[in-house]
């Protein structure tokens, strides 16, 4: 027989224990699928670098930034940004869609003794954690794989850390928002209508400033959170390249996390409660 848990302290302890239990479950599943995870994280950036920074120069189609910086240097922050965002959307949203609708596996966690909002936040933060791991896998790959030279100048560690953390929470929030909004049969649609535009119009392959050549596009892409991830990481990793003002990226990522997070929390509540 349980005694009624009335004090705020023991209630907070119960929620925290429950949250931690769910986090442990997610880490366990991630560890069990580590190989798949790493492969998925690595393949796309690897091919982009290989083709753009190694094959292109060899066949005489080298892409260069205006001030003669190697394309690999431009690509590095972009591809780290891409990895973070891609993991956020894919590794959070797609399993979530299935857990909610198709297999209803999320049931047991929904019935855990914590508010549904806390469950949503766990999903968001675990997504952020996966994004962070993705960044930590991709960056050394780009830096050390000897296809082309990458010039990294980290001027401010606090800036880099802030951008990185906010980027991962944005990715987790985006995954949560998409995962709770979609039905399983809409996954292919999500890939073509959301993932692809977000990636190709996310300033992954070019600094935002250079979009001045296409003014309308330069304005439109500002709605894409990935732009601020890429530009923020450029400010953190390769400040010698043109980039948005760091505080602009940081504010934009904070706002993106808040908005997408709120949509995701509401989305999960709507999906698991009738």
């Amino acid at each position: 027989m349980n005694s009624p848990t009335s004090s705020a302290g023991s209630r907070a302890a119960l929620y925290a224990a429950s949250f931690w239990g769910i986090w442990l479950r997610d880490s366990h599943v991630l560890r069990a699928s580590a190989f798949t995870f790493i492969t998925r994280v690595l393949m796309q950036p690897l091919f982009f670098v290989f083709v753009f920074a190694y094959v292109f120069p060899k066949i005489g189609r080298e892409v260069r930034a205006s001030d003669d910086v190697g394309f690999a240097t431009i690509l590095t922050p972009g591809l780290v940004a891409f990895a973070v965002m891609f993991q956020g959307i894919n590794l959070v949203a797609f399993p979530l869609v299935n857990e909610i609708s198709a297999t209803r596996e999320i049931e047991d966690r929904v019935m855990a003794p914590l508010p549904t909002t806390a469950l949503a936040l766990e999903k968001l933060l675990f997504g952020a954690f996966q994004g962070l791991i993705a960044a930590l896998i991709v960056f050394p790959l780009l830096y050390f794989v000897p296809v082309a030279e990458v010039e990294v100048h980290i001027e401010s560690w606090p800036l880099l850390t802030a951008v990185l953390l906010l980027s991962t929470t944005t990715a987790g929030a985006a995954g949560l928002a998409i995962g709770t909004a979609m039905k399983p049969n809409q996954i292919p649609l999500v890939v073509s209508v959301i993932t692809l535009p977000v990636i190709f119009l996310g300033c992954v392959f070019y600094p935002w400033q250079e979009l001045a050549a296409v003014p309308w596009l330069q304005v439109v892409v500002l709605a894409n959170p990935l732009v601020y991830v890429s530009e923020g990481l450029r400010a953190g990793l390769t400040p010698q390249l043109p980039h948005l003002l760091p505080w602009v990226s940081i504010c934009a990522l904070t706002i993106a996390t808040a908005i997408l997070g709120a949509i995701g929390v509401r989305g999960l509540r709507n999906r698991v409660l009738d």
Binding site: W20, I22, R25
Partner: peptide, 11 residues
């Protein structure tokens, strides 16, 4: 693990 994690969700 289905049972063990369930126990952990309940503290």
């Amino acid at each position: 693990d289905n049972v063990a994690f369930h126990c952990r969700y309940f503290g």
